Amino acid sequence: MVAEDIRFPSLGQSIGGHLTTGAAKGALAFVFAWLLTLVSKPDASLGHLAATLVFSYLIAEIVSAVIERPIVIQRNRTQPGGLAYVLLPFSASLLITFVATFGITKDMVPAKLITAIVAVLNAVKIILTKSWVPGPTPEKDQEMFNEFKTMSKEHFAEDVERIKNQARESTKKKYYAKKERKENTE
């Protein structure tokens, strides 16, 4: 497949996807932060911790998408895999989270706590999605799409034919009914 024929998601679409997963991770992080405030008594309020989570996830997910973009384009895959693809966004999100939390709370304990929560959630996401493993090449993607299209045509061929026949019969009935009404009025 020629490189010009390959259509990668735009940067905006990539950022949108990152923000969506970031919202899910942020909600889980908030639950964990709330549970930890019940167990330990950090100097920061739950509102400050929530604000740091929202701010840090928003910035970290946008930065992650921007960091991943050149790797995606260079390797010519939507999921290129490799250590750089995994570790650069992961490290950036931890740094952003730590700086944001410390900047808002002005305390090292909540900064370490929130950074640890974010690190665990991001590590779980990386492990579940196996981000280090390269995804299919564009050629393989196209091949899988063509196989799916062929399979769908074969699977639904009888239904399509039945629907076409019903449509033909319905159209024919309507035509003759209309023709009969015109003849009766004349």
Rank of each mutant, 00 (worst) to 15 (best):
I126D: 04
T115P: 02
F98R: 06
M108W: 07
P89H: 12
L121P: 10
M108L: 15
G103D: 05
I96T: 13
S93T: 05
A111L: 09
V124A: 10
S93N: 08
L121A: 14
N122R: 04
G103L: 03
V99N: 11
I127Q: 10
G103V: 04
K106Q: 13
V86R: 03
L94Q: 05
K106L: 11
L94W: 00
I104T: 10
K112L: 09
I127L: 15
S93W: 01
K130V: 04
T97F: 02
I127T: 14
K106C: 00
V109W: 07
I96D: 12
K125P: 01
I104S: 12
T129P: 01
K130Q: 14
T97W: 03
S131R: 13
V99M: 13
F90M: 04
L87F: 14
K112W: 12
T97Y: 03
L87G: 12
I117S: 04
I104V: 13
I126M: 07
T115N: 00
A92N: 07
L121W: 00
K130E: 14
P110K: 00
P110E: 05
K125V: 09
P89E: 10
A111H: 12
L87T: 08
A92F: 08
A123Q: 02
A123M: 08
V120T: 12
F98K: 10
V124D: 07
T115I: 01
T97V: 03
T97I: 00
L94G: 06
V86G: 10
K125D: 13
A119K: 07
K125T: 15
D107V: 00
V109H: 06
K125L: 13
A123W: 05
S91K: 03
K106Y: 06
A92Y: 06
I114C: 00
I117P: 03
T101H: 06
L88G: 05
T105Y: 02
A111W: 07
K106S: 14
L88C: 09
G103E: 05
A92P: 09
A92T: 08
T129Q: 14
V86Y: 09
L128W: 08
K130C: 00
M108H: 04
L95T: 14
A92C: 07
F90W: 09
K112Y: 08
L121S: 12
V120N: 03
L88D: 04
S131A: 15
V118L: 06
L121M: 11
I126S: 04
V99P: 11
V99E: 05
N122Y: 08
K112G: 13
I114N: 07
V109A: 11
V109D: 08
L95H: 04
A119W: 00
A119D: 07
K112D: 06
K106V: 05
A123T: 14
I96A: 08
I104C: 06
S93L: 07
F98Q: 05
I117W: 02
V120P: 00
T115R: 06
V118M: 02
V99G: 09
V120C: 11
I117G: 05
S131Q: 14
L128I: 12
A100C: 06
L95F: 08
L95C: 10
L95A: 15
